[in-house]
């Protein structure tokens, strides 16, 4: 597919799509994420079992053995329903935490990069300071102080996820603002807000999108950690992390309780990482013509 004749030059967007489609792992990631998301948000409506329905006669049913396709847990709850409902929670936390982290990171990074000087230095040193804490300990320390729940865990994860975006954006904006097109906007009388939002940030969109995808993966993983350690999403609401927590004691007798949410986490996280890699390559015009 090198039919990019100069006469009918495809638009930049089409070329990005073309490069992305050639990236097999990224396509796999995109398809998996789409499937997972659809399954998690639509699947539970189609299943005969609710995720909190207790089928006491069918405790520890093995997968592929009866009415419960993926088996049941120690209380006789349907594993498939719980995986899908847990997926809702995990994906939701992942996406929302990413969105909040992005917004904060872009804001801080853009302001620091554009104004520089004292403001920029202060902001970026603060970012460095926050970055010094290992995210997981910061998260656990904070989680011990606030009441665990969907909202609080999302905010906590977002609070540990905005710094790297801020650094990426700061670097991008700092170099972009010296470029002549930023000066051109200034000669035209544009306000700072216009220059940052309309001229500069769109040029930094590629690294931002890549960081965003990788951040979703990270947020899902963090949510699993914290829930696994018991500080995150509280039972009976399922999440992939707290399902793993439950599964620990039955690891030898009912291994599927650990394996199934494990697979779900692995699949989601690797898919997002592949997607991020693929986007990184696709958004880089130098990858054209390979």
């Amino acid at each position: 597919m090198s039919a990019a004749a100069p006469a009918a030059a495809p638009t930049a967007g089409l070329r990005v799509l073309e490069r992305f489609r050639r990236h097999r792992l990224a396509m796999f990631g995109a398809v998996t994420i789409a499937t997972l998301t659809l399954a998690c948000f639509l699947g539970p409506f189609l299943l005969p079992f609710d995720d909190t329905y207790i089928d006491i006669m069918q405790r520890f049913a093995a997968p592929f053995g009866g009415a419960h396709i993926l088996g049941t847990d120690e209380l006789g709850r349907d594993m498939l329903a719980r995986i899908l409902m847990g997926g809702r929670v995990s994906l939701l936390v992942g996406f929302v935490a990413m969105a909040i982290g992005m917004a904060v990171g872009i804001l801080v990074g853009a302001v620091a990069g554009y104004y520089g000087g004292l403001v920029g230095t202060a902001l970026m040193r603060f970012v460095d300071a926050v970055l010094c804490f290992p995210a997981i300990f910061l998260l656990l320390a904070l989680a011990a102080l606030v009441e665990p729940g969907l909202t609080s865990i999302t905010l906590l994860i977002a609070a540990t996820a905005w710094m790297d975006v801020a650094r990426i954006v700061e670097g991008q904006i700092r170099s972009l603002r010296e470029r002549d097109f930023a000066v051109a906007a200034e000669v035209l009388g544009a306000t700072d807000r216009y220059i940052i939002l309309r001229e500069l940030v769109p040029n930094a969109v590629a690294p931002i999108v890549v960081a965003a995808t990788l951040n979703v993966a990270r947020a899902i993983l963090l949510e699993s950690y914290v829930s696994f350690l018991g500080y995150g999403i509280q039972p009976p609401v399922p999440s992939w992390g707290n399902m793993l927590n439950n599964a620990q004691i039955y690891l030898t007798s009912a291994p599927w309780l650990a394996i199934l949410p494990g697979i779900a986490i692995t699949l989601a996280v690797t898919s997002f990482n592949f997607l991020g890699d693929g986007l990184r390559d696709a958004l880089d015009p130098r990858m054209d013509g390979r």
Partner: peptide, 15 residues
Amino acid sequence: MQLVFQDPFASLNPR
């Protein structure tokens, strides 16, 4: 009052 730049590529927003 307006400005025309030396490097026409750098002065146009590539996006």
